[in-house]
Design a protein around this nucleic acid. Structure first.
Length: 321
DNA sequence: CGCCTTTGACCGGCGC
DNA sequence: GCGCCGGTCAAAGGCG
């Protein structure tokens, strides 16, 4: 199902409520990023989703983003070799900026809402599903008819990037890849490699704009984000408060009370807890096959003090109001 | 050797 | 009931 036109869109946050997030604003989050805070249950159903980007005025939003937000200049962050973009964001060395107007994203959000299997409730269920539970005898038996599984909070980032899998400080294991209908690009499925963590993420490219990567996180990391890379680099881990639940209430409080879609323009609204820190850490995980620039960039974005430099004064002002 | 990706198959939900 | 589609599993292979 997804968001139908005419369906309520409670929040298209363009500066409001930002103070809520100001203290947790991930300094490394791409300025030109769009965050799709996906409803827990958008209704499921039809795969043909409406263009909710359009619905939300994202098109205009993204345009204004690119037009009004000057490229963030960060002395530390050299443009990654992989990126041909000149507008780079320090926190995402392999991603340059963000925003999109693609219906692909809409589809994604829509699909996300309907996609996940209904058995697992919370981390436990999801993790069980990792094994045989889903296929096992109890998965069906435990599910009550007509009762859908509660989903993990999901959060979609649309990032303009040349690489599909954006480093976010966590270690992920790819467990699947599927061709997506109406899209020439496959969707990749990743799971956090931590045994105690069941966070998943999906990565796919927008069919409308192949330079845009839609990353959808599901679940909540139950461990510190900085999985120390096996490589040479490590970034400064976020404070414990950043990777445990404290931010969750904030996140939760922002979830629409009704089944609505919420689009957050991160400039004024932060991604929730570890999604933010996760991304903040992203560049840090330069692990293999990532350019050294990532490491440099990682160091560049740790300091919240840079926030002022990263966010246009205008935005900051808005943020404080 | 450990970890990761790839990839075909399988499963379940949903629409027709 | 059937078919489509998304999500997941797991074996095999690759890489450092």
């Amino acid at each position: 199902m997804g968001l139908e036109k005419g369906e309520e869109v409670t929040e298209v946050m363009e500066g409001a409520a930002s103070s809520l997030f100001s203290d947790v604003l991930w300094p490394g989050f791409p300025i030109n990023s769009a965050i799709l805070d996906l409803p827990d249950e958008a209704g499921g159903g039809g795969s043909e989703s409406p263009d909710f980007m359009e619905l939300l005025g994202l098109q205009d939003l993204s345009q204004s983003l690119f037009n009004s937000t000057p490229p963030i200049q960060t002395p530390q962050a050299a443009p990654p070799a992989e990126s041909s973009e000149t507008v780079n964001f320090p926190a995402t060395p392999n991603s340059s900026s963000m925003s999109s107007s693609s219906t692909d994203a809409a589809n994604d959000a829509d699909r996300v809402a309907q996609a996940t299997a209904p058995e697992a409730v919370g981390d436990e269920g999801a993790e069980l599903g990792r094994g045989k539970t889903i296929r096992g005898s109890n998965s069906k038996g435990e599910k009550k008819k007509g009762q859908k599984r509660q989903r993990e909070p999901r959060f979609a980032f649309m990032t303009k990037s040349e690489v599909d899998h954006l480093e976010d400080g966590y270690r992920w294991r790819k467990y699947g890849q599927k061709a997506v209908k109406n899209s020439p690009f496959p969707r990749s499925y990743y799971r956090c490699t931590s045994a105690v963590c069941s966070v998943k993420k999906r990565v796919e490219r927008s069919c409308k704009d192949p330079t845009i990567v839609v990353t959808t996180y599901e679940g909540q990391h139950t461990h510190p984000s900085p999985v120390v890379p096996r490589g040479t680099h490590r970034y400064a881990p976020p404070p414990p408060s950043a990777w445990s639940s404290p931010y969750l209430p904030i996140f939760s409080s922002c979830l629409p009370s009704t089944q609505t879609l919420e689009f957050r323009q991160h400039i004024s609204n932060t991604p929730p807890f570890d999604y933010a820190t996760s991304f903040a850490a992203s560049v840090g995980d330069a692990r293999r096959h990532r350019e050294p620039a990532a490491a440099a960039a990682a160091g560049a974005v740790r300091d919240h003090g840079l926030l002022q430099d990263l966010i246009p004064a205008k935005v900051m002002k808005t943020d404080q109001e």
